[in-house]
Simulated assay, not measured.
Amino acid sequence: MRINKLLSNYGICSRSGANKLIEENRIIVNGKLCIPGQWVEKEDNILLDNENINEKDKIYIALNKPVGITCTAEKTVASNIISFMNYPEYIFPVGRLDKLSQGLILMTNDGDWANNILESKNEHEKEYIVTLNKPYDDDFIQGMSEGVEICGVNTRPCKVLRISENTFQIILTQGLNKQIRRMSKTFGYIVVRLERIRIIGIKIDGIESGKWRNLTEKEVIELRNR
């Protein structure tokens, strides 16, 4: 595999981070400076800062993200999720939850595990509680459930349940950018509060805003096998 993927799989850095290490001449493969995009084998002698690379222990975290935090691993972005957590090891967000939204997001250093969760064809469920700027009617629920054209594509049919006159529960199996906000706007509504409360079998219950917990081994395995 390429050196970028190996370092990412080992939980050492992101693929883009690997490119930076290569540019800084900090990686040596079999006695020679690594080049961008180089193919490597696990059996190769790979040094980072003149020390053998070792696969990091895998990290799996459920975070209750507050409003105002941006789901990016790019530390130059203001209020990024990595600086917010200040976690001592390399981790990255699994997918995204827009800055104005709050709730559950998974963090990890396991690229393959993350990709399985994000793979669109797997149709993994994500559940949200959404509050609109005004009361909605039954036509809104039906229209949202059947799918809406946004960004040039039709959203998949989904489950929508009424909670109150202006709040509803929605379960999606895809993750288009700002999907719920754009779907609601199609019907003339503005989302004023959006909270993700579940990703597949992981629930936000018991995690205070801004706090996180480690996933159990059982949870990690269940998500890997979905």
Rank of each mutant, 00 (worst) to 15 (best):
E123S: 14
R198F: 06
I150G: 10
K134C: 10
G95A: 03
S164E: 11
L176A: 07
L172E: 05
I53P: 04
R15M: 11
S184P: 07
N19K: 15
R196Y: 02
L97F: 02
L63G: 06
R15F: 11
A114Q: 08
L6E: 04
K75S: 15
R96F: 02
L132N: 00
I91V: 15
C158L: 09
G147T: 06
K159T: 11
R162Q: 08
I129K: 06
I207D: 05
V40K: 01
E208Q: 13
I46T: 03
T108S: 05
V191W: 02
K126D: 03
G175Q: 03
K99I: 11
N214V: 00
V148H: 00
N9T: 06
G152W: 13
L132T: 12
N30E: 10
G68W: 11
L63E: 02
D98R: 01
Y87H: 12
S8I: 05
K159I: 14
I59V: 15
L104F: 09
F168S: 01
K58W: 09
I91T: 04
Q169H: 15
I35G: 01
I163D: 10
I197A: 02
Y189E: 05
G17Q: 12
I197F: 03
Q174F: 09
G206S: 12
T131L: 07
G11M: 03
I69P: 04
S83A: 13
N45K: 12
P93M: 04
G37T: 07
M107V: 12
L172S: 05
K56D: 11
D205P: 06
I12K: 10
D137I: 09
P135G: 08
E195D: 04
K121C: 07
K5H: 08
K159P: 03
K203N: 13
E89S: 15
T173R: 14
L6K: 06
E146I: 06
R96M: 00
D112C: 10
Y10N: 09
K211D: 13
N54V: 14
R181V: 06
F92Q: 01
L194R: 00
G31R: 03
L97K: 00
A18P: 06
T131A: 07
G103F: 01
